[in-house]
């Protein structure tokens, strides 16, 4: 029987791979908005990877990293959207 911690590690690695899959779009998005969208999705996947890694490694202190990643990625998205709208970038 598969150990549940190994399952958590596998899911964490897979989510991190999804985040890595988005890097080409961040590198060569035609506009700034493309990059912001891809960066948001990548950071959500990274937060999921951190959550699953924390559950697999039994380290509850890593969970706060995930919460900060999620909340600040969206605050960042809203701030970038604001700047784009005002035409400063």
């Amino acid at each position: 029987m598969i150990n549940i911690d190994q399952l958590y590690f596998a899911v964490a690695i897979a989510e991190a791979c999804v985040a890595l899959l988005l890097l080409p779009r961040i590198a060569r998005g035609p506009s700034v908005s493309d990059r912001i969208v891809a960066l948001n999705t990548a950071s959500t996947q990274a937060a999921l990877a951190v959550l699953f890694y924390a559950a697999g490694a039994d380290r509850a202190i890593y969970l706060d990293v995930a919460i900060w990643l999620v909340s600040f990625s969206y605050l960042g998205a809203i701030v970038w959207a604001r700047f784009l709208e005002r035409g400063l970038i």
Partner: peptide
């Protein structure tokens, strides 16, 4: 873990539509 996961889920459910909407509007106006 479950408590933190639920906090993250609530954050995603509330802020993600707002951020997507703001990004789409900003992209259109830019």
């Amino acid at each position: 873990y479950a408590a933190r996961a639920l906090i993250v889920a609530a954050l995603l459910l509330t802020v993600n539509p707002a951020a997507s909407h703001a990004l789409a509007r900003a992209a259109y106006r830019a």
